[in-house]
């Protein structure tokens, strides 16, 4: 079942609560599921369950490279590890381990990187990965997901457990706008059309889906019909949906909470340059480092807003003419 339930309202469930409930649930349903964390259990509400289940939850301390290696060793013995830490430490801090002990050695693990991009807010630039998607995309056979809302998070996490390869889910711990109804299944690798449109298509992922929906509403008031497509699975990309929407509209905007290098924009334009070259515009971080501040400020600072998406849509429509 999948039901789109977007009103623009914030979801009552925080994503960290979803992680805190879903990880234990998955472990209870499957004895091979094992959860590893690097001293951030209290950040996603798993600490209490972990303390009661020391054989199912392993706190590795602040040693991410080792945590990934241990997870891969467990995977080689048939376990299905779910690994969590903050996004930067779940990607660049342990990249060689993810790449070799995980990908190359064919040890399948699921990694959750919390607080990607501007959702790192008050932890600032050191904790603000705008490059995690690029790194994970470069691992052969990987799956890369930028979760859209808490209901999708639950669905994709469940799907990742038995999926082969290195799987990465990036998601903020705090509030997201509801896009999908509770209990919705969002199959990995399938784009979801959230809004039909004929003039342009906005491909978005993660927190930018909400911004894209707001932008499309604003554009409608100006007589511009923009489709919104949720490309939460950045890899493997739903190339068919990307090409089909590019053909239908002839103008593409991509919105992502990531550096424009190596993320969703690169993934989409790679497909379009070969299959359906059309005018494209990007709403992403323009090759900058992060900085500290509330999310609203940071979104404006880096141009990750509905207003910017609307502007870029108008710009791409100019090109289309």
């Amino acid at each position: 079942m999948m039901k789109i339930e977007y009103t623009g309202a914030m979801d009552p469930r925080l994503c960290k609560a979803v992680l805190g409930e879903t990880i234990p649930k998955l472990a209870e349903a499957d004895p091979d599921v094992i959860y590893l964390d690097a001293d951030l259990m209290n950040c996603i509400g798993t600490a209490k369950w972990a303390a009661a289940h020391p054989d199912r939850a392993i706190n590795c301390g602040i040693a991410e490279a080792n945590m990934v290696g241990v997870a891969c060793g467990l995977a080689s013995a048939g376990f299905k590890p779910i690994v969590h830490t903050f996004g930067p430490f779940a990607s660049r801090r342990c990249y060689d381990q993810l790449f070799l002990s995980g990908g190359y050695a064919r040890n399948s693990i699921t990694v959750i990187g919390t607080d990607p991009g501007v959702t790192a807010t008050m932890n600032g630039g050191t904790h603000m990965p705008f490059e995690d998607v690029a790194l994970y995309r470069a691992i052969p056979g990987s799956t890369v997901i930028d979760a859209t809302d808490p209901n999708m998070l639950e669905s994709v996490l469940r799907q990742c457990v038995d999926r082969p390869g290195v799987k990465y889910i990036r998601v903020g711990r705090k509030q997201y706008a509801t896009v999908y109804a509770p209990g919705s299944e969002t199959p990995i690798g399938k784009a979801v059309t959230l809004r039909e449109g004929s003039d342009a298509v906005i491909f978005a992922a993660g927190i930018m889906v909400h911004e894209a929906m707001q932008a499309a509403q604003a554009l409608e008031a100006e007589g511009i019909s923009a489709a919104v497509v949720d490309l939460f699975t950045i890899k493997p990309l739903d190339a068919e949906a990307v090409v089909s929407w590019a053909q239908k509209t002839g103008a593409v905007v991509v919105a992502e909470n990531h550096n424009r290098n190596g993320g969703l924009y690169d993934a989409v334009t790679q497909v379009l340059s070969e299959e359906c070259p059309v005018p494209c515009r990007c709403v992403a971080v323009e090759d900058e480092f992060g900085e500290v501040g509330p999310q609203g400020y940071l979104q404006k600072r880096f141009g990750l807003t509905a207003e910017h998406i609307a502007q870029q849509t108008c710009a791409v429509l100019e090109r289309k003419k």
């Binding site: 392993i58 290696g69 060793g73 080689s76 013995a77 048939g78 070799l100 002990s101 190359y104």
Partner: peptide, 18 residues
């Protein structure tokens, strides 16, 4: 699988734990 030095240590720890 080993080769990038250091990585076998954590893998072995994970295997022993498993």
């Amino acid at each position: 699988t080993t080769g990038s030095l250091g990585q076998g240590t954590s893998l072995a720890a994970g295997m022993a734990l498993g």
